[in-house]
Computed example of a mutant assay.
Amino acid sequence: MSYQGRINRTGGTRVKRALGVQAALEWAFRVEKAQLELPVLQDANEGGFGFGLEYVLLHRAALGCKIDGGRHKIGTYIHEDAEVIAATVAGMPDKLGGKRMAIRVAELARAGLTPDWMPGAVPRCVPVEVKRNQHGERATTVVVGTERVLSRGKWRTVDVLACPVTYVPHPQQIEAARRAYADWWQALGWIRDGLIDGGMLRTVEVTEAMPKVRPWNHR
């Protein structure tokens, strides 16, 4: 689907363009190049961020009431609905990551990307260090103890060697990547619900469609 397509009209009635929340975000930040304007707390001691729909309504008032409105930033036209979407993202509540998540969502949308949840990643047991020479590769070993062994009728002390190993990628690395994806998914759900419930978009209709909640469970 082209994000830049014109809104069709039938019999003088405006037909909204239906977009899932991820597509709507990419249209706003990637195509319309909306900017994320994060609110600044008046009281530095206040613990919350998330201004929610109240903050978006303030932006709506600043945008004016023209159906085909929008603002000019440095001489560039930005669609009014894109501004509203950006304002909604800026209102991300602390419980979902606040400013940090708002920036993350905007950056990913601007790049047209989904968080890397490390698809297909399976931890492999590999040596911590490998030495290479003309004879090939050899895993590095370390002395972990000594043992007394009977060899040719004599007791000898020999080193006990072990090969330190690790897992690549580490399971915690995979878990962290997928937890970050899940956090992003929840943030998109909040944005979707806010845009649908707020009813402030005039040419775009955000649908219930969402990215897969756990894509690593799908084959």
Results as ranks from 00 to 15, higher is better:
Asn8Ser: 14
Asp159Gln: 10
Gln186Pro: 00
Gln4Tyr: 08
Arg202Cys: 10
Gly75Arg: 07
Thr13Leu: 12
Thr140Glu: 15
His72Pro: 00
Pro171Asp: 02
Gly145Pro: 08
Val84Arg: 13
His135Phe: 15
Ala139Pro: 05
Glu137Val: 02
Trp216His: 12
Gly97Met: 01
Arg202Tyr: 03
Asp116Leu: 03
Ala182Cys: 11
Thr203Asn: 08
Gly75Gln: 07
Leu19Trp: 14
Trp27Glu: 06
Gly120Gln: 10
Val15Asn: 15
Ala82Trp: 04
Asp193Gly: 09
Gly189Glu: 12
Thr114Arg: 09
Ala24Leu: 05
Cys65Arg: 11
Val126Ser: 07
Glu107Asp: 15
Ala18Gln: 15
Lys33Gln: 12
Ala90His: 09
Pro169Lys: 09
Gly198Asn: 02
Val21Ser: 00
Val84Lys: 10
Asp81Cys: 00
Arg9Asn: 13
Ala106Ile: 02
Thr141Glu: 13
Gly97Asn: 00
Gly194Met: 08
Leu25Pro: 01
Val160Glu: 11
Arg138Asp: 07
Leu188Asp: 00
Val165Met: 11
Met118Arg: 11
Asp68Lys: 08
Arg9Cys: 12
Ala102Asn: 03
Thr140Met: 13
Ala82Asn: 07
Arg192Gly: 07
Arg148Tyr: 10
Ile78Gly: 05
Asn217Gln: 15
Glu83Thr: 06
Val149Pro: 01
Val31Gly: 00
Leu161Gln: 06
Ser151Asn: 14
Ala139Asp: 13
His135Arg: 14
Cys163Tyr: 00
Pro115Gln: 01
Pro171Asn: 06
Arg156Leu: 14
Val213Asp: 09
Gly189Lys: 09
Asp68Gln: 08
Val158Met: 00
